[in-house]
Design a protein around this nucleic acid. Structure first.
Length: 226
DNA sequence: GCCCAGGGGGCTC
DNA sequence: GAGCCCCATGGG
């Protein structure tokens, strides 16, 4: 029942947006670096920082591990909170060096529960970033929840307003087929819906592909006004 | 020139 | 464990 609804939501989003080609990166290291840098900032700002790191030959954890903070910081200024972001990149590179001799692949190969737990113990890695890394860098099953996901589900009337991260993640994982490609695309599509149609200030519910299923859209009168 | 995006850490009670 | 502030750029 729930699975049917979730797949229906997926279909509507996919018909509207098509393949999102997420995560855009050339290497797994780039996925992880991007996942840290994108926290609380747009992807376009993140891209700028990734290009700067690339230009400075800092787009690898080996290089980040060697580099002093004041060399990393100027590269990531565009990602807001740049001192914090530089520290987070450094913390990840230090962790990898200390525990996996810098071998990201070896780290990512672990079973999801262990991998996730270790990720969450690294400075700067919270639940969302951990799941980005498990799914998009590790290619393993973990559903990513973000603020858009929470808002969209609440507006659809499917989940409680204040459902927590772990609760929502478990709910998706219990009600979706265990398919990495599906998890990948589903989160990317929710992100697109959230970005384009489901912001708190500008709930432009039309032409949101989910409007036909959405309680919020049906209650709000933006359809008939202007 | 002002508002605000939308994650994580750290503190408080 | 919920609620709050801090981080501090750039696009609309």
């Amino acid at each position: 029942m729930v699975q049917e609804k979730l797949l229906q939501i997926y279909q509507l989003m996919f018909e509207h947006f098509g393949d999102r080609h997420w995560w855009p990166a050339q290497t797994k290291e780039e996925v992880v670096i991007g996942a840290i840098l994108v926290q609380n900032v747009s992807w376009s700002n993140t891209e700028k920082a990734i290009e700067k790191l690339r230009q400075q030959d800092l787009l690898s954890f080996a290089a980040l591990h060697r580099a002093p903070l004041d060399e990393i910081e100027p590269c990531v200024v565009s990602t807001r909170f740049y001192k914090t972001k530089a520290k987070k990149l450094k913390a990840f590179s230090d962790f990898l060096d200390a525990n996996y001799k810098g071998d990201l692949e070896a780290f990512l190969r672990q079973p999801v529960p262990q991998l996730r737990e270790q990720l969450l113990n690294i400075y700067g890695i919270g639940p969302e970033t951990a799941d980005d890394i498990v799914l998009y860098a590790g290619g393993q099953l973990s559903f990513v929840i973000d603020a858009y996901t929470q808002r969209i589900l609440a507006r659809l009337g499917i989940t409680q307003e204040q459902a927590g991260y772990e609760e929502l993640r478990t709910w998706f994982m219990e009600n979706l087929p265990a398919d990495v490609a599906l998890f990948n695309q589903y989160h990317a599509l929710l992100d697109a819906v959230g970005h384009h149609y489901c912001s708190p200030k500008n709930p432009s519910c039309t032409p949101c592909p989910l409007a036909p299923l959405c309680q919020y859209a049906q209650q709000n009168h933006s359809f008939t006004q202007s």
